[in-house]
Amino acid sequence: MSFEQVRHRPPSGLERPRELVVACVPMRSNVNLSTIVRTAGCCGVQRMIVCGNARIDQKIARDGAESVALEVRNSLPPVLRTLRADGYRLVGLEQTTNSSDLHHYSFPRRTALVIGNERLGLGEAELELMDDCVEIPVWGRPFSYNVATATAMALYEYCRQYPS
């Protein structure tokens, strides 16, 4: 019995737009930011808020840069307050004393996933605004995943919980 393998199938559509916003503090690496944009595009995220001198490398971000609306802001806390007022739950991707394990966290459909800096994570101003923080278990060293990798894991988990 033979069957044809199809590569690069078109994306499966969503029944409704994702109610997920990705918000990033200033990143040190445009490679990480571009990778996050690409992953967000793959996950059907329509809106990202980025801070600082955000430059996207089109070769890395590929089609994600076309499908995700990028908003560049000077500071994240005012934007986070607005998102909360609009009904989003603010979920920081950060290792804190009260973080929930990503494997056991139930994302609200209307989530703003807040991503910290590669070295410094989320600052106090952002952490004070979080409704929840989630972290990804690490079983070796270093003690945390690369920011783009961790964001991909968190976005995938959100999409697993809300596949359509």
Rank of each mutant, 00 (worst) to 15 (best):
T97G: 08
T35I: 09
R89N: 12
G116E: 02
S67Y: 09
M27S: 00
A112P: 01
S144M: 02
D132H: 05
I49M: 00
T82S: 05
P137W: 13
I49F: 00
V79G: 04
L70F: 06
N32C: 07
E126G: 00
Q5P: 14
E124R: 13
V50I: 11
Q95T: 11
N30M: 14
I49R: 01
E126C: 06
L33E: 04
L76K: 04
C43M: 08
R28I: 07
P17A: 14
P108N: 03
A125I: 02
R28N: 12
T149Y: 14
P26W: 12
T151H: 03
R141S: 12
G123R: 07
A152D: 07
T149V: 10
G87Q: 04
N53E: 14
Q46C: 14
L102R: 04
I60E: 08
R47I: 11
T111N: 03
Q161T: 12
V25T: 07
N117R: 06
G52I: 00
N32H: 12
E71N: 09
D86K: 00
M27P: 08
D132M: 11
P26C: 00
C42Y: 05
L70Y: 13
C159G: 13
D131R: 12
R28H: 07
S100Q: 15
F3H: 15
Q5S: 15
T35H: 05
L127N: 03
E118Q: 11
I136C: 03
G140P: 05
R16W: 13
R109F: 14
R89T: 15
M48Y: 09
L20S: 08
K59V: 13
E94Y: 04
A150V: 10
R81G: 09
G64C: 00
G121L: 02
E94M: 07
G52F: 03
E4M: 12
P77D: 08
V22D: 06
G41Y: 06
L90N: 05
S2G: 12
C43P: 08
